[in-house]
């Protein structure tokens, strides 16, 4: 900018004093968190390490990381923990598949004009949302107390195709059933909201083209409902990943169960809690990134231009930065 342009009229922006104070408080808080995360404390009071150099004895306390980072590092990639991580992911995936499939079916039942279909769907949601998932896990784990055998046959007639002892319900199966069936109740509400959000005109247009009800639902309504269904479903997946830790209490050695087993032997409780937290954080972060791209995919057609990916935004920022740098070079 040239001198005479500057001398025209100066613009004085408003000073946001409150923002500066707030920023200062936040900075101090961040400094405190970082400090406590990476500070060292004496291993045990009165326990000193003494060194004699040149006839002089110097003693100082033995210091260790407050968060025991070296122990964390030692267990972070241990095979027991990794096996737990894999089981956690497997439980999450299977329970979510059950939850989503069953949830959509229940949502469609709920929206049916047939009362005999709508009412059971309502009762299902009422029951599974009304009892804690932790309690439900114990119910499935102890189902053997209620039924001795699982039988597939014709109801009320003595025809049996397949029968097995309920002993097959191990902790993992109880966790899959408990988490999946409970999730279906929540997913059904999410799917129902999504289906209702699609304009009725879409159904009419599909019907007028000669599509059956099933085709209309599959080809027209559900794909558009996805835009509304995906974001809360992403939250459900992330929530499920963490909820699987409850299965540790019914003898499932998923991530949290694995670290509990380890600390039961070596009493390094805190380090192992940190190990679990780091893994959960890593997995939820990856999922959040995936969620962004899936949401973007299903928003097609709903928005005139899809939101930029972080990479695109970074590129644009760099481009404007570069542009600004070039401009200043030209004017100077």
């Amino acid at each position: 900018m040239s001198k005479d342009q500057q001398s025209e009229v100066e613009v004085v922006p408003v000073r946001h004093v409150g923002q500066w104070v707030g920023a200062a408080v936040v900075l101090v808080a961040i400094a405190m968190v970082v400090h406590t995360l990476f500070s060292k404390v004496p291993l045990q009071s009165g326990l000193n390490k003494c060194v004699t150099t040149a006839g002089k004895r110097v003693c100082h306390p033995i210091l260790i990381w407050r968060f025991q980072w070296n122990t964390v590092g030692q267990y972070l990639f241990s095979s027991e923990v990794l096996r737990g991580v894999i089981l956690t992911l497997e439980l999450t995936a299977v329970a979510m598949v059950i939850g989503i499939v069953l949830g959509v079916i229940i949502a469609v039942m709920r929206l049916s004009s047939n009362r005999l279909l709508a009412a059971p769907a309502w009762v299902y949601t009422w029951f599974f949302r009304g009892t804690p998932v932790y309690v439900q896990l114990f119910f499935w784990f102890n189902i053997g107390l209620l039924y001795k055998r699982f039988t597939l046959g014709v109801p009320f007639l003595h025809v049996t195709f397949f029968s097995t002892s309920t002993n097959v319900i191990t902790g993992v199966w109880a966790a899959i059933l408990g988490l999946g069936l409970n999730e279906a109740a929540y997913m059904s509400e999410i799917a129902r909201a999504g289906i209702i959000s699609v304009d009725e005109g879409q159904t009419e247009a599909a019907t007028s083209l000669g599509m059956t009800k099933g085709q209309t639902l599959r080809l027209v309504v559900l794909p558009q409902a996805m835009r509304v269904i995906i974001p809360p479903t992403g939250n459900e997946v992330i929530s499920m990943l963490k909820t699987t830790s409850l299965a540790a209490s019914i003898a499932v050695i998923e991530l949290f169960g694995a670290v509990q087993n380890i600390w039961a032997n070596n009493f390094k409780t805190l380090s192992l809690i940190v190990v679990a937290c780091l893994w959960y954080l890593f997995m939820t972060t990856v999922m959040s990134i995936g969620q962004f791209y899936i949401e973007r995919h299903f928003a097609r057609g709903a928005l005139r231009s899809p939101p930029m990916t972080p990479i695109q935004r970074l590129r644009k920022d760099l481009r404007t930065l570069g542009g600004r740098a070039r401009n200043t070079r030209v004017t100077s």
Partner: peptide, 26 residues
């Protein structure tokens, strides 16, 4: 039945006030 009516509807085109194009399709 639903199916039989669908077959008949396919022979009758309909244009709506609010267009009702499928928003998720090109």
């Amino acid at each position: 039945s639903d199916k039989q009516i669908c077959g008949e509807r396919a022979n009758i085109g309909m244009v709506f006030q609010r267009f009702n194009l499928f928003q998720h399709l090109t």
